[in-house]
Design a protein around this nucleic acid. Structure first.
Lengths: 222, 222
DNA sequence: TGGCTTAGTAACCAATTGGTGCATTAAATC
DNA sequence: GATTTAATGCACCAATTGGTTACTAAGCCA
């Protein structure tokens, strides 16, 4: 009995779809296990593709990782640009940016783990990416102009470094989420309970407002 | 020619020293490569010990990781307790805590990577550690009483959650350092230059002061 | 219809990895 | 000095892993 007839799956050939499936599967696997812990076989299985296809399309595990990272950065930076901060008063724009950042991390937990993994490897994979450099410039320019506008309107403190601000906005959300497991033990608290998440967001917005706004423009405490 | 006579190194047997060497080597290796990327052989080589010794003393790679983590947490929390914040005015005490946290991360970069790795594994290894829970309680109690004292003396805002404050203090230093590699690319800046580090510390202290102190107790801007 | 390119598959490989069995040797105890 | 116990070293698995060779077959175009 040569040739099993029932194994004749009508497998359609679709290069683009296979690549997309591999990329999506790789994102999950890399996020869950890190670059070192991720298994190429696992990615292939998750993508319902043959392992050989991964090497066919991406060349190596590391090159695949690079692709995944670039896509991830592109995604968050694109979403940020769509916030249209210019259309809002400075303080409201800052709050929108803060809420967006928090929300993005919450909805895309893989982003955080991917970035962590990339930093463990000293940013070796994004180092050469001109795409990432380009979108990053627009990202910094965004907060730069927001700060300038706030200062001009007299609501923000002058002299703030947009880079430091960006880092801080990211930090107070990112750290909370990436370290939520050890955090739950250290602080003996469920950090992911809905009201805990709400409380953290509120606390972060408060932190940012106090940092950026002129004291006399802040809602006064009793 | 049985028994090579020149291989008779007067190797002294010292269980404690060997264990310590293994632990130190493991800390470095785990910090550099993460739990998954760390190689037991590499740890043995770095410790100038035989791989067999690792299993003799620690049982498994994961148990060794657990040991390393526990020691790391014990170290930072012990150093914190030695800060003697009670002997300082509240604002000065807060600044000392901020400076310490930043300095500790800078001097002990392995701590950050270890914690990252542990969170990638959902805190599985510290979960059962009663030691960590115990010292963590004292850690939270420390800022709790600092906040209370500051409020009582009229310099701190009332109602602040000590856990949120602790998380924020850690976050704004930790994130900057752990993501310094991708950060250098995104922000096109050497984040580890001495003056960059100084600037970040100053920015962080400012952030914390504005968050915690009553606005009228803050040094006024022009 | 037949041939050519390329998507897709399966089996395989060499190197690596966490982990052990067992013999050996140094210190502690008697 | 003999005996016991714990520390050390070497050689060696069994399983896994990133990557590859050799092959099949789908879709396109002449």
């Amino acid at each position: 009995m040569p040739d099993d007839p029932e194994s004749t799956k009508p497998r359609t050939r679709d290069a683009g779809a296979t690549q997309a499936r591999i990329l999506a599967a790789a994102k999950i696997e890399f996020a869950e296990a890190g670059l070192g812990g991720a298994r190429v076989d696992a990615i292939a299985a998750r993508a319902k593709a043959n392992k050989r296809m991964i090497y066919h399309y991406f060349g190596s595990k590391e090159a695949l990782f690079q692709h995944v990272l670039e896509a991830a950065y592109l995604d968050i930076r694109t979403a940020e640009q769509a916030l249209d901060l210019d259309g809002l008063p400075p303080a409201a724009a800052l709050e929108r940016l803060a809420r967006f950042t928090w929300g993005y991390y919450l909805k895309n937990p893989e982003f955080i783990t991917l970035v962590n993994s990339e930093n463990l490897h000293r940013a070796r994979h994004v180092e050469g990416s001109e795409v990432i450099r380009a979108i990053s410039r627009k990202f910094v320019a965004m907060t730069e102009s927001l700060l300038a506008r706030g200062v001009a309107e007299g609501v923000f403190r002058p002299g703030l470094d947009p880079v430091q601000l960006n880092i801080t906005i990211a930090a107070i959300g990112y750290y909370y989420l990436t370290n939520r497991f050890t955090g739950a033990i250290v602080f003996e608290r469920d950090l992911m309970a809905p009201q805990a998440l709400e409380a953290r967001l509120a606390f972060n917005i408060e932190t940012e407002m106090r940092l950026v706004c002129r004291p006399d423009m802040l809602p006064q405490d009793p």
